[in-house]
Amino acid sequence: MPRFMGLIRMEEGDAVGTPPQSLFDAMEVYIGERAADGRFIDGGGLYGTEDAVNFVVRKGEVSRVDGPYAEAKEVVGGWSLLQYDTLEEAVADQQIFADLHAKHWPEVTVISTLRQISEAPGD
């Protein structure tokens, strides 16, 4: 069964604020239904970049860059590991996920990304 990574990106900072309770409630139902039937494997929200650490490999050298990152406008705010029978089913369900955000938190810009996970080298 194909597996997918869902990522949600959004602006970081105080201007975004906290998601409304109605979104938390809707997501609890959405995730609960998918966890019960095996589509949702794992996932969660991420803290902001203030404590993030990046290791940058450039020209054979490794450097460490600690957050916060003033130049970052969008950050990954959450992730999920999902599985579906088909790509079409995954895409349709990601649309529902995006629609929940549009309905319950319309004042923010959210980018919801779905990527299929490579199961073997070269596939």
Results as ranks from 00 to 15, higher is better:
residue 109 T to G: 13
residue 111 I to L: 15
residue 50 E to S: 13
residue 122 G to M: 02
residue 86 T to W: 07
residue 83 Q to Y: 03
residue 31 I to Y: 12
residue 20 P to A: 13
residue 93 D to V: 05
residue 50 E to H: 10
residue 16 V to C: 04
residue 121 P to H: 05
residue 8 I to M: 06
residue 67 G to N: 06
residue 57 V to F: 08
residue 55 F to N: 07
residue 93 D to N: 10
residue 122 G to S: 02
residue 123 D to C: 13
residue 123 D to I: 10
residue 112 S to C: 08
residue 79 W to H: 13
residue 85 D to F: 15
residue 48 G to T: 10
residue 4 F to H: 06
residue 110 V to Y: 10
residue 36 A to S: 03
residue 9 R to Q: 11
residue 13 G to M: 03
residue 45 G to T: 09
residue 104 H to R: 03
residue 100 L to M: 06
residue 98 A to R: 02
residue 26 A to W: 01
residue 59 K to A: 08
residue 75 V to A: 11
residue 59 K to H: 09
residue 13 G to I: 00
residue 63 S to H: 00
residue 81 L to V: 14
residue 106 P to I: 09
residue 65 V to F: 01
residue 97 F to V: 04
residue 116 Q to L: 10
residue 42 D to N: 12
residue 83 Q to D: 08
residue 9 R to F: 12
residue 86 T to G: 02
residue 62 V to W: 03
residue 13 G to H: 05
residue 35 A to G: 05
residue 1 M to E: 05
residue 52 A to C: 04
residue 50 E to D: 15
residue 38 G to M: 00
residue 54 N to F: 13
residue 35 A to V: 08
residue 107 E to T: 15
residue 120 A to Q: 11
residue 26 A to Y: 01
residue 60 G to D: 03
residue 111 I to N: 15
residue 21 Q to V: 12
residue 22 S to P: 04
residue 61 E to K: 14
residue 39 R to K: 07
residue 68 P to I: 03
residue 15 A to Y: 10
residue 117 I to D: 06
residue 123 D to H: 11
residue 60 G to Q: 00
residue 116 Q to F: 12
residue 8 I to T: 09
residue 58 R to C: 06
residue 53 V to M: 09
residue 111 I to D: 15
residue 70 A to G: 07
residue 44 G to M: 10
residue 26 A to V: 01
residue 108 V to R: 14
residue 6 G to Q: 09
residue 5 M to F: 13
residue 117 I to W: 07
residue 54 N to I: 15
residue 29 V to R: 11
residue 36 A to F: 10
